[in-house]
Every structure is written in structure tokens, then in C-alpha cells.
Amino acid sequence: MTGSLARALGVSMRFGSFTAVDSVSLAVDKGEVVGLLGANGAGKTTVIRLLLGLLRPSGGTVRLFEAPPTVGTRRRVGYVPQSLGLYTDLTVAENWHFTSAAFGSPRQGLPAGIESHADELVGALPLGTQRRVAFAVALAHRPELLVLDEPTSGVGPLGRARLWQDIRQAAEAGAGVLVTTHNMEEAEECDRLLIMVDGVVASAGTVAEVIAGRSVVEVRCDDWDAAFVALDAAGFSVQAHGRTLRVAASSQDVTALLAHEGIASRSRSVPANLEEAFVAVVTAGSVS
């Protein structure tokens, strides 16, 4: 793990008797996009604050650019909160120059993607454009590590695709990117994922590794509505995708129930998607 931009080794954070983060290890390397996932309260924000040195860990080691985090090392980080942190009553150009000055960067022109909006007030721009501006502003001081909180939430499909293009471009230029999200569409854009449950890393790896051979039962039948009600009423974890049902259960149990209810159906086991895997990881994690 040497050479990591940000690294946590067995890091814990206790607030009084409450353990918010428990022995978490993670690393963000140059050029990669890492997704930190978890429900609200799982500990994502605390991990970020620990990595940036805004909190001192109760245990374990945090390294930012191979050294304990300080105000100096934090200058090498770019952060885009969900609230974007832009001044909505200033123009795009004013936001850009103000932030550059605050970081002591030399005065420079606006990047191509946002130049056409230079004289517009940020507050008057569509959300997707505001997010692009926030991202460009966070990149202005050429940070080596980018921390992004749900970077594309609320943005339409094309706006999202363009934002991810910007993010990938930054990674390919050598930055490490840490994305915190509970949006599975964003998670699927990442190279690696860490899923946090109750302060612990419950699963880690690529999307394929997190799904890790998990499967669900896909049910097709003419009477999807009757099948859905029967499965739901019997306590199965069932989700409809159009007229196709997906059930987190054994194929035999599903087939037996539907046969008992007199509903003709065809069932087969199919690989789980990331969302289903996430629910399985979180549900298992909170039981233990």
C-alpha cells in the first residue's frame, strides 16, 4: 500500500461510548476511483473527516500523502460537498477566481467545460451545470486527491455522463478520487467499492467482487400482480422490474409458495445486481 494518496490502517473513532468507525482500513491510490458506500449513519462522513485530519482517530493510523494529515497536506485535497459549496450570488468566473486565490493558485483562465457560463450567476444555472462548476473549482488548485459527496445526484442522464467524464479525466491525469454515495448508479462508475455497515467495512472490492456469486430468483408469470402479492404477503423480499419479479430467496421456496397459491410461473436463479448485493451485505451486517 505504499504510495497511497490517502490511507487508513485499523482506524477507529469513538464519540463517548459510541463507536462510529471500528478498525477501518482503506487506501486511495493515484488514478483510481474508489466508492465509499453505506446507509446514512454508517460512518462514511466520519471516515472522510479522519482521512482529512478534521478528526483525530481514537485508534489506528491515518496517512495523507504519506504523512499525518495537516493543514498543509489538506491543501493538496479537493473536496466537493453535496451542497456544492459555491457562492450562488457570484458568477461562475467570480467563484473560480475567488477559490483559486484562496488556495494561493496563480490566476488562470476558466476551463473549457464551464467557460461559456463565465458571466452567469451560479444560482441561475441548472443543477448539472452547477455541479460541473463545483467540480472544476475544486480542481483549480490541481489537487492530488479528490473527495466527492454524491457528485451526480439530481443530475439528468447526459449531465451525469459529462460529469463522470470530468471525474475520469482527473483520475487519468493522476488524481485519486474518493466518492461517497448511496446511489448505486454512482457506485457502478467506481473502480473499487467499500461498503460500510455500522462503522465497519462489511464488503470491499470491484463491483463484481462485491456481488461475489450472490444470486436472486427471477420469476416470470402471466399473473405478476397475484404472484407479487402472494410472495410479499408471505414475507419474501420481492422486487418488481416491470412484470418480472426478483426474489432474494431459494428457488425451491419461491416455486413451492407460488405452486401452493395456484400461480403458474417460471423461475430461475440469476446473478444479483449491485443494489441487491448491497442490501444483502447491509442486512447481514446489521444482524451480526
Binding site: V229, D232, E275
Partner: peptide, 20 residues
């Protein structure tokens, strides 16, 4: 919007149930 995936699955279960 802004709901974690476990609650999201629960909400979709309710939505599909109403449709069903």
C-alpha cells in the same frame, strides 16, 4: 431520493404492491 438502498428497496416493494 436520498434514501439508502435498503429503504429504497422497501419503498419499491410498497409501490409495486400498490400497483399489483
Amino acid at each position: 431520493t436520498g434514501v439508502d438502498p435498503v429503504s429504497r428497496a422497501e419503498l419499491w416493494r410498497l409501490i409495486s404492491r400498490a400497483g399489483a
